[in-house]
Simulated scan of single mutants.
Amino acid sequence: MSGPRIPRNSHAIYRAVNRIFEGISSPPQGDYHEVVRYMNEELPRFEQVDSSYLILGSYRDAYGRRLREFANCLNMPTNAESIVLGDTIDLDTAVVPEFDIKINLLSEAADYIAGVYEKESGGESPELGVVRALFVNKTVAFPRDYTGLTRDSLETREDIIQAALAVYYADFDHIESKQRVAEKKKEEIASLLTVAQEEGIEITERELTDLIKERQSDIDESPAEYSWVHLNFFKRFEAMSQCHSWTTMAELRDRADEMPGPERPRWETEFNVGMFQDE
C-alpha cells in the first residue's frame, strides 16, 4: 500500500498553514485537527481540475444568489472548479480564528480569486483587504456600479448609465405628486442624454431605458456605494486590468469570461437543434 499522496500545491498549503499559526505559540491540538479537517474536506476539489477559483463577496440573500450564479458560470467547463468561501464547512476552533483558516488555505490553493462586490459593509471588506495584500496578482474584482476612483464629469458610457440609475432611484421627497416625480426623472435622464451626445458618448434613449428596466427586474436597488478604501482597492485592480464593473445580472454572467482559465462552453456553436428533429 502506497503512502499518503503529496498535494500538487503542497508549498502553497505550507505557506498558508504557517500564516494561520503565526504568532500563536501553542495552539490547542483541536485547532490543528480543524485545520487538517478543513484541508481534507475542501481542498481536494481543487486537485482534480486544471483551473480552480475562490469566490468572495456577500453570501446572504440576493447578494449571495448573484454571487453563486457567477460561480456557476465559472464551473461550466468540466475542467474548472469554483468554491464560494461562505459555502464551505464550519470549523470549531478554540484559538485560531475560523476566517484565518478559510481565507488562507483557499486563497493559496486556488489558481484564481474572484471578488464580487455590491456594498461596503459586511465580511467582504476584510476579505478584500487580505487578497489585496497577499494575492493581488491572481485576484480579479467585480464591483457593481463602479465607475472609477473619482469622477468630476460624465466621461464614459458607464458614467451616463450610473448617473441615470441614480436619477431613477432618487427619492425626490420635496416633490409631492408622483406624476411630477416621474416627469422630473424623465427630464433629468433627457439631460444626461444631451450631455452624452455633446461628449460623443454613444448611447440612445431606448438603450438607457431598456437597461433601467432590466436593472429593475433583477436588481431593484439604487447604485452601490463604496468607502474610500474600497475605491482605492478597486483602482489598484483596475490599474492591473483586473477590475471589471457590472450593472445587471446579464453583465455579471458575461463578466465570468474575464477570468483566466478554460473557455466556457458554447453549446449553440457545437450543433444545430434541427439535426435532432425528424424531417
Rank of each mutant, 00 (worst) to 15 (best):
R157W: 01
Y59V: 13
L74Q: 09
C243A: 14
A12L: 14
L105R: 09
A12F: 14
V273E: 12
S51G: 09
L43F: 10
P143A: 00
L252F: 14
N18G: 00
F234D: 06
E268I: 12
I101F: 12
P97H: 09
S245K: 02
Y14M: 00
I175G: 00
V84L: 03
P7A: 01
L211Y: 12
L134W: 01
Q197I: 02
G261E: 01
I24L: 01
A250D: 14
A250C: 04
T269S: 06
Y59C: 10
R144Y: 10
S222M: 12
Q48R: 07
R8D: 02
S107E: 09
E69D: 10
I212M: 03
R255S: 14
P4C: 01
D257S: 11
V136G: 05
G148Q: 05
C243F: 12
N18R: 07
D31G: 00
I101E: 12
S58C: 12
S107M: 07
L192V: 11
R255P: 10
R132G: 02
P28V: 03
P262N: 02
F142I: 04
F46C: 00
S58A: 11
T150Y: 14
M76E: 05
D218V: 11
Q242N: 05
M259N: 06
S52H: 14
A110N: 10
D159N: 04
I160K: 05
G30C: 09
T93W: 08
Y112E: 07
V140F: 11
R66N: 12
